[in-house]
Simulated assay, not measured.
Amino acid sequence: MLNYIIRLICCGAAVYFMPAILSKISVDTFTTAVIVAFVMSILNAVVKPILQLLSLPITILTLGFFYLVVNVFVVYICDYIVPGFTVDGFLQPLIFGFILSIVNGIVGGFQD
């Protein structure tokens, strides 16, 4: 449980500093950033596999590129759920999800 909390805080810090890199993303406070990290972890564990299963035929037709659209859709769902977190465009949320997964992987690598 402590490992998850540490990972959540580190990902929250990454989310908090992400608007400095990506102009179409805004986060109000650090608390909002931690809530975004928590909601993203829930969405990635529950909603994303369902979306991937439902979009499997189009993913096969696009040779896997439709997974990028699924990732952006998950970020937009988080934008809808969490007040104080806004996302705009397509490329910015795609980069956001990519950076967040890299940070999550790095933090997870240190905790094992």
Score class of each variant (00 low, 15 high):
V70D: 03
V70S: 02
L56F: 10
V34Q: 00
I35R: 00
Q111G: 07
M40L: 14
A20D: 04
L91F: 04
A45P: 09
S55D: 05
L94N: 05
V70C: 03
A37H: 00
A37Y: 01
F30H: 01
N104V: 15
V15M: 06
F38T: 07
Y80M: 10
F38E: 11
T86K: 13
I81K: 01
P57Y: 10
V47R: 01
V70K: 01
L68G: 08
I42H: 02
F96N: 03
A13K: 06
I60A: 12
P49F: 13
L2A: 10
S26G: 08
I58E: 02
M1R: 14
I42S: 03
F17K: 12
M18A: 14
P19I: 04
L53P: 00
I50Y: 15
G108S: 15
V107C: 02
S41P: 07
I81C: 05
M40H: 05
V87G: 03
T86L: 09
D88P: 12
V107N: 01
V87S: 04
V39I: 12
A37S: 06
L43M: 10
P57I: 02
C10I: 15
L22Q: 06
C78A: 13
F17D: 10
L63T: 05
Q92G: 10
I9S: 00
V46W: 07
C10N: 06
L53N: 08
N3W: 15
M18S: 15
L68D: 01
P19G: 08
G12N: 08
T31G: 14
R7W: 11
L22Y: 01
P93I: 05
S26E: 14
I25R: 05
C10V: 14
D28F: 01
M18I: 14
Q111A: 08
F38D: 03
V82Y: 01
Q92P: 11
G84R: 05
L63N: 02
L94A: 11
G84Q: 07
S55E: 06
M1V: 11
T62V: 10
T62R: 09
I60G: 08
F30R: 00
S26C: 02
V47C: 07
C78P: 04
I58T: 07
L100M: 13
I77H: 04
I42P: 04
